[in-house]
Simulated scan of single mutants.
Amino acid sequence: MGGMSDQSTPQPRTAVVTGASSGIGAATARALAEQGFRVVCAARRTDRIEALADEVGGEAITCDITDAASVEALAAAVPVCHVLVNNAGGAVGVDRVDEADLDTWRWMYDVNVLGLVRVTQALLPALRASGDAVVVNVGSTAGRWAYEGGGGYTAAKHGVKVVTETLRLELNGEPIRVCEVAPGMVRTDEFSLKRFGGDQARADAVYAGVDQPLLAEDVADAIAWVATRPSHVDIDELVIKPRAQAAAHKVHRS
């Protein structure tokens, strides 16, 4: 009888979240844990993801998505994956195209696009093994609008959008949905601070006077919703902005 009971106990579904050490990634790990997932928290900062994994009852795996061996180690630790959230990314600088620092552009492409592809390639066997999987790529409204000083980041996020669309076409017929959640203005502790090289005043100015920018939890809620639709429902793309942001060039400030 005991064996029958063990067999009838469903195993928790597994979700992998990259860039889980802060911001949208950490909030997404919490949101998916609340939905009953066993969450694998992947990021470079081991202390942060270990604390988060303890909080949500998940697992921490130190991973640099720009490093092939690191990503292979992540994949080796996850034999079955039901949800992959490719959240790791970032922006550096606000260079004009004619003055662009190509090293920072290269870093943004490596993290936002190539890192996403590297992780997806490595985890595809685990996604297939689940029999019903969802890939959620965290894009941006920067993948839809151009703005001055944003060339490197917008190019990378346009890349995320097209990679997502291509992957959906190529996996058609397999039980894997491919989705993009594209946030607008989100106030997190680190995104703008990193973009401006640690200049807190410049980071704060991005959100100055904005009536309630999005929070990481708002985006995480959207990601969790996309990831938990019935298996025949694919949310191709979900663009989420604060009410104050009508467009890249139209933000209400008090």
Results as ranks from 00 to 15, higher is better:
Thr104Arg: 15
Ala60Lys: 08
Thr62Pro: 05
Ser21Gln: 12
Asp98Arg: 15
Gln121Gly: 00
Gly198Ile: 10
Val85Lys: 00
Met108Phe: 06
Ala26Asn: 06
Cys41Glu: 03
Gly149Tyr: 14
Val138Ser: 07
Gly198Cys: 07
Asp211Tyr: 00
Thr62Gln: 14
Leu215Ile: 09
Val160Gln: 08
Gly149Arg: 14
Gly209Lys: 11
Val97Tyr: 10
Ala15Cys: 08
Arg44Lys: 13
His158Ala: 14
Gly149Met: 13
Gly93Thr: 07
Arg13Glu: 13
Ser8Trp: 08
Lys241Glu: 11
Met4Arg: 10
Val160Arg: 09
Gly36Gln: 08
Lys241Gly: 00
Glu190Gly: 13
Leu214Tyr: 02
Ala182Asn: 12
Gly25Ala: 04
Ser192Gly: 10
Cys41Val: 07
Val226Gly: 01
Gly19Gln: 06
Arg253Tyr: 07
Asp234Trp: 01
Pro79Trp: 02
Ala33Arg: 02
Ala75Gly: 07
Leu102Tyr: 15
Pro125Gly: 10
Gly36Asp: 07
Arg38Gln: 11
Leu124Asp: 00
His82Leu: 01
Lys241Tyr: 04
Arg128Ile: 07
Val119Asp: 00
Leu74His: 05
Asp199Leu: 11
Tyr153His: 09
Ser8Val: 05
Asp95Gly: 05
Ile65Val: 14
Gly209His: 09
Gly150Tyr: 13
Ser5Phe: 09
Glu170Arg: 10
Ala26Pro: 04
Asp103His: 13
Ala69Glu: 15
Asp54Pro: 01
Ala91Gly: 15
Val80Gln: 07
Tyr153Met: 06
Glu237Gln: 15
Pro10Leu: 09
Leu214Ser: 08
Glu34Ala: 15
Val138Thr: 12
Trp107Thr: 01
Val17Met: 02
Val80Tyr: 00
Val233Phe: 04
Leu169Asn: 14
Ala15Tyr: 04
Val71Glu: 06
Leu215Thr: 15
Ala42Ser: 09
Val56Thr: 13
Leu32Cys: 12
Val181Glu: 04
Asp211Lys: 11
Thr14Gly: 01
Gly19Cys: 09
Asp95Ile: 00
Val40Ala: 06
Val162Thr: 14
Leu123Gln: 03
Gly173Lys: 10
Glu72Gln: 15
Ser5Lys: 13
Glu237Tyr: 06
Met4Gly: 12
Ile223Ser: 01
Gly115Cys: 06
Arg253Ser: 12
Ser140Met: 08
Ala76Lys: 12
Ser254Ala: 14
Leu127Cys: 07
Ala33Asn: 03
Leu215Asp: 12
Glu99Tyr: 07
Thr18Glu: 02
Thr188Phe: 02
Arg128Tyr: 04
Ile240Asp: 01
Met4Asp: 11
Gly159Gln: 10
Lys157Tyr: 08
Val233Pro: 00
Glu165Cys: 07
Glu165Ala: 15
Leu114Ile: 11
Lys161Asn: 13
Thr166Gly: 10
Thr46Glu: 15
Gly115Ala: 05
Gly139Lys: 12
Asp218Glu: 04
Ala216Ile: 03
Val136Ile: 08
Ser70Glu: 02
Val138Asp: 06
Asn137Tyr: 04
Val119His: 02
Leu32Tyr: 10
Thr228His: 04
Gly151Asp: 10
Ser70Cys: 03
Arg106Lys: 13
Val16Asp: 00
Gly23Cys: 04
Val233Ser: 00
Glu190Cys: 09
Val85Pro: 01
Gly115Tyr: 01
Gly173Ala: 11
Ala129Leu: 11
Asn112Pro: 08
Asn112Ser: 09
Thr28Val: 03
Gln7Cys: 06
Ile24Trp: 02
Arg48Val: 02
Val56Cys: 03
Val178Tyr: 02
Val117Cys: 11
Ala248Met: 13
Glu174Gly: 00
Ala246Cys: 05
Val80Gly: 00
